[in-house]
């Protein structure tokens, strides 16, 4: 949170402290006129009076004062706001190892299902593009806000075959993304880059353009033998792509986890932290808290 008028915030806090002190003084005066009972100890033991409503009202009152002080100081908040015109490229590995069945039914089909879940979670208006990569990479669908087109593109993914050109896929995504706006790349793979350009370099370029790469590694540690070679994941490399671009890495070992991870990403990539003017919000919240405190206090027999 930042403040446009910090000196007014300081003044507001000072005012809140003065109001609180005056309130406490008035409360002490009211205490002196309050009802007297023989033994408070007996009363407390017998009744077990509820003190939380008093504490809640006091807290609400203090919170209202704080809200007014923040509004006075021109508070600006950095909040995750839904991005309606974002662009996301999903790069799906279609190399031979994706035919592995350690993730049911196959890694490729699980990735397709998970990508559908991702699309379902994105905010309407988000443009989603699909890139399939094996020995080379190809754009299956240019970024589109049409959900049906995205689903159709996912159905049209090529069968698992060939090497793994992660760098080529990232490069295609970099070229296909708009120059500005909220842009994200999601990379789903189960292998090691063994063809095309250096993905680390492309990831750094995307990072420089403020395009985060969210990488998801699929597969069990034992993996599967595909074409006479063990299908393994280069987790360190995937983590590095995510780190250098400002994204995140997740490793999944089954279809459900993959689906959950992509669905979560669908929500994450649809929101971006944006500075928001909090003056009106804090003012409204403070007013609501004051009204609620007064009404609740009156209903309970005392204005805090």
């Amino acid at each position: 949170m930042s403040f446009e008028r910090p000196w007014l915030l300081a003044l507001g806090i000072l005012g809140a402290i003065v109001v609180t002190m005056l309130f406490q003084r008035a409360e002490r005066a009211r205490d002196a006129q309050s009802l007297e009972y023989s033994s408070l100890q007996f009363f407390a033991q017998a009744v077990r009076p509820r003190t939380w409503p008093v504490a809640a009202l006091r807290l609400a009152f203090v919170a209202a004062l704080a809200c007014f002080a923040f509004a006075l100081g021109g508070a600006r908040l950095s909040l995750p706001m839904p991005v309606r015109d974002g662009t996301v490229f999903i790069c799906i590995d279609t190399s031979g190892s994706m035919a592995s069945t350690d993730v049911q039914p196959t890694r490729a089909q699980a990735a397709q299902e998970a990508a559908r879940a991702f699309v379902a979670e994105t905010v309407r208006g988000t443009r989603v593009g699909i890139i399939a990569f094996a020995t080379s990479a190809e754009v299956v669908l240019a970024p589109s806000a049409d959900r049906d087109a995205v689903r159709a593109a996912l159905d049209a993914l090529p069968s698992p075959n060939g090497a793994t050109a992660i760098g080529d896929a990232l490069q295609l995504a970099e070229r296909g993304l708009p120059a500005t706006g909220h842009r994200v790349v999601v990379l789903v793979t189960d292998g090691v880059n063994n063809a095309g350009v250096d993905p680390q370099q492309v990831a750094a370029e995307l990072g420089a353009l403020h395009v985060p790469i969210y990488t998801i590694g699929i597969g069990t540690p034992s993996g599967d033998i595909i074409g006479g070679t063990q299908a393994t994941i280069d987790e360190a490399a995937l983590q590095a792509y995510a780190r250098v671009s400002g994204g995140a890495y997740a490793h999944v070992e089954d279809a459900r986890a993959l689906r959950d991870a992509l669905a979560r990403l669908g929500r994450v990539t649809s929101f971006a932290r944006q500075p928001v003017d909090g003056t009106t919000g804090f003012l409204a919240l403070g007013a609501v808290l004051v009204v609620v405190t007064l009404l609740a206090g009156l209903a309970r027999g005392s204005v805090p």
Partner: peptide
């Protein structure tokens, strides 16, 4: 009844 203040005699 309600939110009350009480003073103990002691």
């Amino acid at each position: 009844q309600g939110i009350v203040r009480l003073r103990g005699a002691d």
